[in-house]
Each structure stands twice: as structure tokens, then as C-alpha cells.
């Protein structure tokens, strides 16, 4: 039997909003450590990896590791039926062909129960090497979302270049060009407003803004976003997920292959 209860059900709603437009179908790998998902988009240009730790749930039981293959847009539609303050419980028998979702309203007066069919997905896994990155930038996630949205008006690709204490996003297209320059902040008064850059060597790389704007749908999950870049390896965009009492619940990590000169 697999059963996972999350009092802060809104986290699960936001995770599905953050991945459903990028990946149609994916499998949740559930083990005693927690729930994880890894899937590429259909073009194999980007990949999303989600991790939710077992001890981040309010109740977590996983007798045997199970793989729950699902259509994510269906799951997202069901999760839209849950209120933002609802407790969400996922339940699946070990050899079942469906998963049950239970939504309990805060005042315990209302309980909803939905069943979603499971799918047999022969998902291919990618081995992602743990490489040290030349550049890591931590910045406010809403700033990253706005920059990607603004620059997509100008062109379909952004060139990210990093110096010691600043990061530059540049785009150009038929109507013209645009650049956004962010300087590293000193000790910002609010940590979530800070921009911090650690650079081993300068980089300059280009990426398709279409995918970055998909990634930015994870913005509601985390006040900060972390960008990791190295020459000629995919970009990593990571949103760490903490719950209300600030403990680490997991992360959403996106990988994006670069665009290179012909």
C-alpha cells in the first residue's frame, strides 16, 4: 500500500501547474525515501525532475516501491478540484491500476475523493552526471520570470553571460534587441530579494526562451531560483520547495540543452 498525506495540499497543486505544460505523461517513483519524477518534454530539449521527501509529508507509507504512471494534465485537472487549504492524500494499492486522491477541507466538514487511472509508461531515464558548474546564480524567482517573459517579446532565444558580479540576459529579433543586467546585491535586507553569483569561469550561452517561460511556472513554489551554467552543458534551473515551517520538502529541477552557433 502506498499512502501519502500532505496538509499543505497547495504545494502539490503548484507542482502540477509547474510541470503539466512541459510533460504530458510521466511516472512518479515512490519509495520509502519519497516521491520523485523525471521526464523529458516530447522534443527532448528539456527535462524536469521533481523530488518530494517522505519526511515532508504529514503521513507517508510505502510498503513496496511503486511506479505510478499518469497523464499529468488529468492529474492536474483533478488537483484543481482541491481547495488551496485542503489536505491532500494520495493512495494506491501495490498492484492497483488506479490512484485515489482524497481532499479534506480545513474545517473537516467536506471530503472529496477522486480516482485516476494509472498508465503503463515505458519511460526512458536519463543519467544526469553531477558536474561542478562554472557559474551559479541565485536570484528572486519573480525577477527571472519577468525577464524571461519580457525578452520573449524581443526574440526566441536569450544569451546569458556572466561576469564576476553581474549576470546579463540579452535577446534580439526583428523588432530590435534588449538586455537585462543584474548586479550581485550586497547583503540584501530580505534574503529572497538578493542576487548572488558564484563564478569559477565566465560563460556565455544561449537558450530557447519558450522553455524558460515554461520553467518559470514553478515561481509560486519558491521565492528564489538557482541557475547553474557551464560551457556546452545543459542549463539547470532549480526551485527548492520548503513548507510553511521552512523545512526542506524537495525541489523542482529543470534542465535545458543550449542553442549553439551552427
Amino acid at each position: 500500500m502506498f499512502e501519502a498525506k500532505l496538509i499543505q495540499g497547495a504545494i502539490l497543486k503548484k507542482i502540477l501547474d509547474a510541470i503539466k505544460d512541459l510533460v504530458n505523461e510521466a511516472s512518479w517513483d515512490c519509495s520509502s525515501q519519497g516521491m520523485s519524477l523525471q521526464a523529458m518534454d516530447t522534443s527532448h530539449v528539456s527535462l524536469v525532475a521533481v523530488q518530494m521527501k517522505a519526511d515532508g509529508f504529514d503521513k507517508y507509507r510505502c510498503d513496496r516501491s511503486v511506479t505510478l504512471g499518469m497523464n499529468l494534465s488529468s492529474l492536474s485537472k483533478i488537483l484543481k478540484c482541491a481547495g488551496n487549504d485542503d489536505t491532500i492524500t494520495l493512495k494506491a494499492p501495490d498492484d492497483g491500476d488506479k490512484i485515489t486522491l482524497v481532499f479534506e477541507a480545513k474545517n473537516e466538514s467536506e471530503t472529496s475523493e477522486y480516482e485516476v487511472k494509472l498508465m503503463n509508461l515505458d519511460s526512458e531515464y536519463l543519467g544526469i552526471p553531477d558536474t561542478p558548474y562554472s557559474v551559479n546564480v541565485k536570484m528572486p524567482s519573480h525577477k527571472f520570470q519577468r525577464i524571461c517573459r519580457d525578452l520573449q517579446q524581443i526574440g526566441d532565444a536569450v544569451t546569458i553571460s556572466c561576469a564576476k558580479d553581474s549576470i546579463r540576459f540579452a535577446a534580439k529579433g526583428d523588432l530590435g534587441s534588449g538586455t537585462v543586467n543584474l548586479c550581485q546585491t550586497a547583503s540584501a535586507d530580505k534574503p529572497e530579494d538578493s542576487v548572488s553569483i558564484s563564478m569559477q569561469e565566465p560563460i556565455i550561452q544561449s537558450f530557447a526562451l519558450k522553455y524558460l517561460n515554461h520553467f518559470a511556472k514553478a515561481t509560486p513554489l519558491s521565492p528564489q531560483v538557482s541557475l547553474s551554467l557551464s560551457p556546452d552543458v545543459p542549463l539547470v534551473v532549480e526551485y527548492s520547495i520548503t513548507d510553511d515551517d521552512g523545512s526542506d520538502f524537495g525541489y523542482i529541477r529543470y534542465y535545458l540543452a543550449p542553442k549553439i552557433d551552427e
Binding site: H44, V45, L126, S206, A257
Partner: peptide
């Protein structure tokens, strides 16, 4: 013009 690379060129597919 820039060519879009694929993840399979960087990560090993199992």
C-alpha cells in the same frame, strides 16, 4: 543562426 541541441547529446539515456 543557432542550432538547438538535444539532452540526449549530453545525458546518457537508459
Amino acid at each position: 543562426l543557432k542550432k538547438q541541441k538535444l539532452l540526449n547529446e549530453y545525458f546518457h539515456v537508459f
